[in-house]
Design a protein around this nucleic acid. Sequence first.
RNA 1: GGGGCCUUAGCUCAGCUGGCUAGAGCGCUACGUUGACAUCGUAGAGGUCACUGGUUCGAGUCCAGUAGGCCCCACCA
Length: 895
Amino acid sequence: MSDETTRHELSARFDPTGIETAIYARWIERGAFHVKAEEAGDPYVIAIPPPNVTAPLHMGHGLNNTIQDVLIRFHRMRGRGAMWIPGTDHAGIATQNVVERDLAREGLTRHDLGRERFVERVWRWVDQYGSTIIEQLKTIGCSCDWDRNRFTLDEGLSRAVREVFVRLYDKGLIYRGNYIINWCPRCLTALSNEEAEHQETRGRLYHIRYPLADAEGEFVVVATTRPETMLGDTAVAVHPGDERNRHLVGRDVELPLVGRRIPIIADEYVDPGFGSGFVKVTPAHDPNDFEIGLRHDLPRVDVMNGDATLSNEAPEAYRGLDRFVARGRVLEDLGTLGLLVKAEEHEHSVGHCYRCDTVVEPRLSLQWFVRMKPLAEPALAAYREGRLRFHPERFGNTYEHWMTNVRDWCISRQLWWGHRIPVWYCQECGEVIVSLDDPTQCDRCGGSLDQDPDVLDTWFSSWLWPFSTLGWPDDTLDMATFYPTNTLSTAPEILFFWVARMVMAGLEFVGDLPFSDVLLHGTVRDSQGRRMSKSLGNGIDPLEVVERFGADAMRYTLVSSAALGTDIQLDHEDLDSAFRVGRNFANKMWNAVRFGLGYLEETDVLTDPTSKELELADRWILSRFGSTAAAVTDALERFRLHDAAETTYQFVWGEFCDWYLELVKARLRGDRGEASRTAAAATFAFVLDGWLKLLHPIMPFITEEMYCHLPGRTVEDSLLGGPWPGSSPELADEQAEAAFGALQEIVGSVRILRSDYGVDPSRRVDVVVARAPEAVAAALEADSEGILRLGRLSSLDLVEAIPAGEPGAHSVLRSGVEVFLPLAGVVDLVRERERIQSEIERLEGILSGAQRRLEDPNFVGRAPADVVEREREKQRSCEERVALLVEKRAAFGSS
RNA sequence: GGGGCCUUAGCUCAGCUGGCUAGAGCGCUACGUUGACAUCGUAGAGGUCACUGGUUCGAGUCCAGUAGGCCCCACCA
């Protein structure tokens, strides 16, 4: 495709269809995202939060992965070995649930298949659907090092998991025990504390009478929100200091419906102020009661089965009933016996399974745990010493709080899909063997072995992600080169699940933090502020957005809406309002380039503008570009992607397109000679190239496409590798900015005057400008054509002073310049007088403020000199303008 | 029960270290076939920065409290 044909092929509208996929394919073909350890130089590394294999891409992924891609591309352009390691998570419960649901459609359960065949089936599922999200990430432009794609259940990562388990076990940090854990009766597995999501629920607090044994007609009253658990009560407790009830300690009550005699004990746990001061104690069904049970050596009566039906430990009448059915039956029976005192409305928080939302049941169960305190201490220290930083910073508090109150981590899951726990039990002697390699027989007695049937919590592999993906536990070159990674970008809701644990794992197993900066982005919400979810049907499909608006548009909109630490609201019923912003911007860029293509030559693209005879507009746009590049660089370094997006947008649209491009049209045409043309062309090409680069991290496709379209370039070229514009103080030109600012103000005032007086847009008018500073005057004379066009002017006269008394419209600008439109016949005197009057009043308002400040010795004495000086300047300029306007007003006589 | 966040134009939000004559996008109004772009241009309307106090020469910006909304953590039955 030659440049000639390309120029003509560019349509007025930018249509990303096809372009994005073609460009992405080009990048992949070149291996542009792959970083070899040997060639990494100064690496910049991000490990992707591995999405769940079963999950299709949603907007949260869209946002998070766009953010990561922006960072990776930015650092790649700066010449660093930018390596973004991708992968997916096997997501134990979630994936198993999906496959089980699939089975259910065939009328089967996993038990019908048996463990081995079920796991095979999950693998098939994963092989079939597991690459979907990876493809979707490519669609939105993610520049991951796909050669390093990993899966938490692949061989290498499994080895890391086992290594870690054995190390922690040997160190005494993994133990097995019978404790109350969160149990999901639907998933039939234990959950960690973090996986039990507490939701405020309106329930009832039931007050129940327990008759005292051997004392007809005497009762104690206990309260509970889960009456069915009373069937497992093994004591009633009061506070040891409770004067009212102390005399009852040591006596027994007879447990209603069960008939068991249980003791009244004294325990510090009880709050004597709550209710009657009596607490029923159910050690097998409540974590606190479990602790009380330990202290008092109480029996544990487990009245529930795994599926939350009542077990054989419960009285016969209730056996086999679901917990909630049993609850009703118990209440009914208590009522019949006259033992139910009351049921009051009660707000409390109830744990729900984070995967299936079933109410979790605290359940006594034999599980594996990790002792967290020793791991948390160095992780906390890393934060306190400033080696680990959060953006926004406030999440540091959350992290600190969780770390200081960390509890042991229940890591065993009664699932089939996951890393099997590397523990074997001897059938003969009961020996427990924890081993890196599968043992064949008991090393003590030679007996045969059974492996623990359970698997590990999904997060037990995820917490190793930043190094297990690099080949750990082997001493690999990748580890040496890419660890620690630099930035972790994720959603705040997995701060504990994942981020905190990765920090602990990195420090414990590798001896170094897994990353130094954690970027926590906001949540994508719908127009009512609700979290997007499948069940609410309020989600937005990123692929639909890509299809309708293009990936660049989606990325721009997401990044520009995501100020650090804030959520994003998107209306799922009106995608247009949000994403058109990005699409329109892409279209604007496209057309700016399309315009340039009409005039630029290959030599222009290659010319250093500073070697040319630059005019004011050139020096101005170069200066503005320099500060824009510096601001964008700073914003990206500080994770303020939103600022980077907005700053570039304002520059490209509001400065480059609105002013520079408009002003250089004639020069590019050659109307003002070759020297002027080449200066404009070289500047245009340079600045255009520059902002294409600045925008590339956010909008990679269109920028690459445009870049390759410029004369002298082909699809072989790419701006992936930068160089990043960065700060270029040599471009700064304060005088040019000031002079050009005055010029913009003149044009602006002409437009306002025209508009105020309703001058027909097609009518060209004359303008008279007075009191223009030399630089401005020179620019006006040198490039009157541009100004004439921008103001729709027929002529521009520079004079010493505006002739008094002539009919027309006046304006006195901030720069002190006077602008006058001789509009005989259009301007009526009364109206012009009023206009001037209101402008005087506005200025006087500002002036009096400035004067008040300047007359205050406290202000003059205490405010910094530059602030005072600015105030003086404001005063000077306002006084001058008011004086001029008063003169004008006088010329109109009194009304 | 702790901890955190939010409340700025009709809507969605910026405003980071206090100096603002408070910004952007969308929406709205008026005008416009200006050879890059109507996915556009020009101009405009629209804000007592939730409220009350305090600190300060100066507060949208800092502090305290009040009201409303949101989130996280927490074993009080």
